[in-house]
Simulated scan of single mutants.
Amino acid sequence: MLHGNILTPDGWLLGELHWQDGRIQRIDGKPVDPASNDAPRILPGFIDLHVHGGGGADVMQGAAAIDTLARTHARFGTTSLLATTMTAPDAEIRRVLGEIDAFIASGEARGARVLGVHLEGPYINSGKLGAQPAYARPGPIAEVDELCALAPIRLVTLAPELSGHYELIRHLSERGIRVQLGHTLGSYEQGVSAMQHGACGFTHLFNAMTGLHHRHPGMVGAALAHAEFAELIPDLLHVHPGAIRAALRSIPRLYAVTDSTAAAGMPDGEYRLGEQAVTKCLGGVRLADGTLAGSTLTMDQALRNLVSVGLSLADASARLSRYPADFLGLVDRGRLAEGCQADLVVMDSQLGVQSVYVEGGVVAEVSITSGLVEGGAS
């Protein structure tokens, strides 16, 4: 049981949240404005659909690294995530997918729950790689089906303008796999056509895609004009606060991701992002040529950043929990209601993390002596 200001789908309640066997049993309380008291803020656990690494570990390193990053991000409030791969040679992608599948099947997760895979590349445009290695190419349906047989791929990022990709988008959508448009030189018209074929989101909106011009709206224009969902990196480095506000006015269920690298939760220095070396410095991660290469963002900081640009705590929370859950079709995560998983983030009045629960088990709590968030056993 926890007592505090509880964010439910119907608003804030001051009261008690009870759970058993990992699921919420009941919530008792009275409506409240959380600004009226200093009791803890109890939020749905954060769901991050774009995670490359954390705690010094990179997804492409395999199962041990995935365990490390899952425990690292749990310290900052993430209770569910998608392990996100990089563009790489076919054999490497297949190896990593096999290791992710084995890790999920083992049930040995001690941090955030790994729900599956976000396949970011190799089916992207070689002219918009960003920090992706140069192995981009079109995706034959038969090959993609082979990859999907290796691990639970829940989300695929691709460039719609590549040969055969409209058919691939339709095929994946019919299989229940979500498709996002990203790392693309596609036009507004190609973005709209991709959505008509079943694409339903945009990967790190504004970054690594054709921008908005009033005579050539580009992929950004397609997102702003037509999208229900899109992911965005709110580290205030990848996207200007003004652009974030514009997207919030246009895309009803814009949701936050970290696009975090091995450098998340770590000091400045050199880390891996797939096969490439990246450097963490001045709050960002970059390749040697200065290209932004993922982020150091954690979801608790994403929440604070969204509040800082004008969102209410309830709205910001929805963009870290309920909307990504909705995007994946998850009805028992991303919200605090009877029957849902007891995935919880307890924060103080300054939005600092106090404790984190995954399916009812404590995975992180504040050390009384140090004030730091430390990993715990679930």
Results as ranks from 00 to 15, higher is better:
A102R: 15
E161K: 05
T68K: 13
E374A: 10
E374I: 10
A243T: 14
L155Q: 14
D101P: 05
S370A: 10
N5V: 12
I42H: 08
M60R: 01
A199S: 00
L303Y: 02
V307Q: 09
L82I: 12
R253I: 01
V285M: 11
A112D: 03
H50T: 06
I93P: 10
L292H: 07
S349C: 07
Q354L: 15
G56Q: 06
S295Y: 02
L306P: 04
H3T: 14
E374F: 00
A149N: 12
D58F: 06
G352W: 11
L330Q: 10
A70K: 04
S312N: 04
D48Y: 04
L351G: 01
A230H: 04
L320M: 08
S321M: 06
L82H: 09
S80I: 04
P34D: 04
Q341T: 03
P234G: 06
E167M: 00
E359Y: 03
A288C: 00
G56E: 01
L273Y: 14
L328P: 11
I368F: 01
T258F: 07
V331F: 09
V220W: 06
H240R: 08
G352K: 13
S312Q: 11
G290L: 08
Q196H: 14
F103P: 05
M299C: 04
G186V: 00
G164T: 12
Y188E: 03
L147Q: 13
G274I: 10
S173K: 07
